[in-house]
Amino acid sequence: MQMLPYMLAALAVGIVVSFQPPLNGMLARSVGSAYGAAAVSIGVAFASILLFLLVMGHGEISRRTLGSVPWWVYLSGTVGAAFVAAGAAIAPVTGGLVFFICIVAGQLVGSMLVDHFGAFGLEVRSMSFMRLLGLVMVLGGAVLVSRS
């Protein structure tokens, strides 16, 4: 499988996602609440995904398939809500770059642990010196950017 198109698509999504916290921050200032802004943002996201389902298809969403998933898998929605609310509350204080460097650093730490232990059905990819070095470099970048 050719990886480059997927990497470019992920890069494009990352660029667009970087707009979400400052936009939600603007919304939070308007409505007077980061959580209110998150609720509006997630409501728009819900409406958008319903439209995508109509256009792209919905797979097999049924009581049977949804019931076969462990209960804790549904916490991913809570994680999404926390991210949206955190962006609305934190990015206006830190700025977009520091916010996302810290988010990415946290994602890298979490992802490295998920890979190392093969959590959530992923293939085990053990920690290595190079992976740890890359992580330390990102964390160092977070410190450098926050001091400028």
Rank of each mutant, 00 (worst) to 15 (best):
M1P: 07
Q2Y: 12
P5R: 04
P5F: 12
L8A: 14
A9N: 00
A9Q: 03
A9M: 05
A12N: 07
V13N: 02
V13A: 15
V16F: 14
V17N: 03
S18G: 13
F19E: 01
F19T: 15
P22M: 05
M26E: 11
A28D: 09
R29N: 11
R29Q: 11
V31M: 06
G32E: 07
G32Q: 09
S33E: 04
A34L: 04
A34I: 03
Y35W: 13
G36P: 05
A37C: 07
A37P: 10
A38I: 08
A39R: 01
V40Q: 04
S41F: 08
S41Y: 05
S41T: 15
I42S: 02
I42K: 00
I42A: 02
V44P: 12
V44K: 05
A45Q: 06
A45Y: 12
F46K: 04
F46L: 15
A47M: 15
S48F: 15
I49M: 15
L50C: 14
L51E: 02
F52E: 08
F52L: 15
L54E: 13
G57C: 09
H58T: 11
H58A: 13
H58S: 14
G59Y: 11
E60R: 14
E60A: 14
T65W: 15
L66T: 01
S68L: 08
P70H: 10
P70I: 04
W71Y: 13
W72K: 04
W72R: 05
Y74F: 15
L75W: 14
S76A: 13
S76K: 02
T78D: 00
V79L: 12
V79G: 08
V79M: 05
G80C: 03
A81V: 13
A82L: 15
F83N: 01
F83D: 00
V84P: 03
A85G: 12
A85M: 14
A86Y: 09
G87Q: 05
A88H: 11
A88V: 13
A89L: 12
I90P: 07
A91D: 02
A91M: 09
V93G: 01
T94R: 09
G95Y: 07
G96L: 06
G96H: 02
G96E: 01
V98F: 08
F99K: 02
F100Y: 15
I101K: 00
I101S: 06
I101R: 00
C102V: 05
I103A: 14
A105Y: 11
Q107A: 10
L108V: 11
L108K: 00
V109A: 11
L113N: 02
V114M: 05
H116V: 09
F117D: 03
F117E: 10
G118I: 02
A119K: 06
V124C: 03
R125P: 00
R125V: 07
F129P: 07
M130H: 11
M130Y: 09
L133M: 08
L133K: 03
L133S: 06
L135H: 10
L135P: 13
G141D: 07
V143L: 14
L144T: 07
L144K: 09
S148V: 14
